[in-house]
Write a protein that binds this DNA or RNA. Structure first.
Length: 575
RNA sequence: GGCAGCGUAGCUCAGUGGUAGAGCAGGGGAAUCAUAAUCCCUUGGUCGGGGGUUCAAAUCCCUCCGCUGCUACCA
């Protein structure tokens, strides 16, 4: 088998503000853990993300912030890049959908679709606000619901009775931006992608992944196909977007831009191009995406469930309709949501925990471990401070942190802080080595399959096995009668600390470094590799006499006072 | 309204036809190297209700109840 390369994209975070923990775990964090794991295994890996910047929401957010949209996006991109870096997200490149490569590629795909007859021009009725001087998206038209009488129903759907609406249905419609009721319906010409033609092809493609994609993903995809795929408008009457080129439709679409959901997934490719430009790699970006050259690439996408339709239907149609050999996703990992005390995370209501505030109160690895160990894979999961503190205190502080602490301190006090060379491994040691000989490959397999909860549970089970061993071997007892026996136990204990660092690095990279530095300096190595040798070798790596560093508390425990403080600060239990 | 997912121990969740599981919490004990951490043992569930198929159902089918999400111009 030829050498495999792995391409990983996490769903693009929308430019409008810092994301919350649910957004983080559903796309960026799980993708990061997967990317780190692949790199740790020595696989050539390219991990790409970008901000999704276009559309009316951005325009209105910029308006509200009193900024022009270019400045707004530049600032927001920098802010997200910063907080994501501090969360340890290890993208090879974090691009922007507003950058030139995405403009070129989006226009290229549109031209291909046009050339191949998959686009058509249709006249649509759009709401125009004279006071605002712009077309309004449906949801920015507000009025009274014709079904239930709710006075603030949005033009796309009534929040009160949940019925789907058309803005023209609303009684006494007004602009959500200015409140003006000086609205009119205008004709507007748009491009439609004839998605319905692709239904058989999509069905076949999705059916081929019935066994390797999560049920969540295939069921959402099939639902869209079963309900009849509508042709979809791929242009909008807004300013901020990729312009439709004049050669499509003989200039009938002048002034229009592509719909943000058309250009956003293309930015996966665009950001790869940006990566190549930023790293002087010329056309190498294309080898990850196009034709024969990309045959050795396995492509993984990570996203929350709200993104699934666009990645199983919309974007694949763009790719298929181009009639060019661009890569389709191989493994699509979709996630549910994390709820906050049973309710949704909400920016507007200030409920829940956001990436920047999370880092204000605790280091990234606390969050990374908790979120991975409780990733919403099978269903929505529920965040509470009590549960969070319980998991962090038990798993990180007591099971992992305390293990490192107890063995290193014992070594410091009784063996002069050096790896003892005396004694040979005996029955207990070989039993543990045999157990890890099963658990470590099992853990690797779970990471490989991107089953994060189970992978984290296996990681934890490995730490527990270390504690079991140490308690049973009890070098603090044996040292009284058999110093060599105790020395062998301590030597294995230190080797365990060392391997724990290697195994935990994809999930908790900063702490893994710190743990490794306790035993051995890392220098400027960025990746801490996954153990590749037999466990016999891996657990007898440290050289006798090698000094270890003075131990320190790795994970401070979360106190009841902190839980109370944070519950009050972040919105707590009221729904 | 339609569709989808979920409903398993106090809590968070595994488990898709073969004698109900894990972690946490609770109870008992051991140990004293360690952040009062660790280790061992243990209590605890008619698997949302009802009906059906089967030698056998948490698992397949029907139905009812509850929760959550999606419903295409927010992204």
């Amino acid at each position: 088998m030829s050498k495999r390369r792995v391409l990983i994209t996490s769903a693009l975070p929308y430019i409008n503000g810092i994301k919350h923990l649910g957004n983080l775990v559903g796309s960026m964090l799980t993708a990061d853990v997967f990317a780190r794991f692949q790199r740790a295994r020595g696989v050539e890996t390219l991990f790409i993300c970008a901000t999704d910047e276009h559309g009316s929401t951005t325009e209105l957010a910029a308006l509200e912030a009193g900024q022009d949209v270019v400045t707004f996006c530049a600032e927001q991109h920098a802010a997200q890049a910063d907080v994501c870096r501090r969360f340890g997200l290890s993208w090879n490149h974090f691009g922007r959908s507003s950058n030139r490569p995405n403009h070129e590629l989006t226009q290229h795909f549109a031209r291909q679709l046009w050339k191949n007859g998959h686009l058509e021009i249709r006249s649509t009725k759009q709401v125009y606000s004279n006071a605002d001087g712009r077309f309004l998206p449906d949801r920015y038209v507000i009025g009274t619901c014709p079904h239930c009488g709710y006075p603030s129903a949005r033009g796309d759907q009534c929040e009160n009775c949940t019925r789907v609406l058309d803005p023209a249905d609303l009684i006494a419609p007004r602009s959500a931006i200015s409140g003006s009721s000086d609205l009119e319906i205008r004709d507007s010409t748009h491009l439609f992608l004839k998605q319905s033609q692709f239904v058989p092809q999509l069905r076949e493609w999705i059916a081929s992944h019935k066994n390797d994609w999560p049920l969540l993903v295939t069921s959402i995809a099939n639902k869209w196909l079963d309900e009849g795929l509508h042709d979809r408008g791929i242009t909008r009457d807004v300013e901020w977007g990729v312009p439709v080129p004049d050669d499509i439709g003989d200039g009938q679409l002048k002034g229009k831009v592509f719909y943000v959901w058309f250009d956003a997934p293309i930015e996966y490719i665009g950001a790869t191009w940006e990566w190549a430009e930023a790293n002087n790699r010329g056309n190498e970006w294309k080898s990850w995406w196009f034709g024969e050259e990309a045959r050795d690439v396995a492509y993984f996408q990570f996203m929350g469930k709200d993104n699934i339709p666009f990645h199983t239907v919309g974007f694949p149609v763009t790719v298929m309709g181009s009639d060019e050999p661009w890569k389709l996703v191989d493994q699509l990992k979709g996630f549910n949501y994390i709820n906050y005390y049973g309710g949704k995370f909400s920016t507007s209501q200030k409920r829940g925990v956001f990436m920047d505030t999370a880092l204000e109160i605790l280091p990234a690895d606390y969050w990374r471990y908790y979120l991975i160990a409780n990733a919403p894979e099978g269903s929505d999961s529920n965040f509470t401070w009590e549960h969070f503190a319980g998991v962090v205190n038990k798993d990180l502080a007591d099971v992992l942190g305390n293990f490192v602490n107890r063995i290193t301190r014992f070594c410091a006090s009784r063996f002069d802080g050096r790896v003892p060379g005396e004694g040979a491994y005996g029955e207990d040691e070989h039993a543990l080595i045999a157990e890890l000989g099963k658990r470590v490959p099992a853990c690797a397999e779970l990471f490989e399959r991107a089953e994060f909860r189970k992978a984290a549970a296996e990681l934890r089970a490995i730490w527990v096995a270390g504690n079991e061993y140490l308690t049973h071997a009890a070098p603090w007892t044996t040292i009284k009668t058999d110093r060599d026996r105790a020395a062998a136990s301590v030597r294995l204990g230190l080797n365990l600390v060392h391997i724990f660092s290697h195994l935990a690095w994809p999930v908790i990279p900063a702490m893994a470094r710190q743990i490794h530095e306790t035993i051995q300096p890392l220098g400027d190595r960025v990746t801490i590799p996954w153990p590749s040798g037999s466990l016999d070798e891996e657990l007898d790596q440290l050289e006798a006499g090698q000094p270890i560093r003075s131990p320190q508390v790795l994970f401070a425990k979360i106190t009841d006072e902190q839980i109370m403080e944070w519950t009050a600060r972040f919105g707590g239990t009221e729904t």
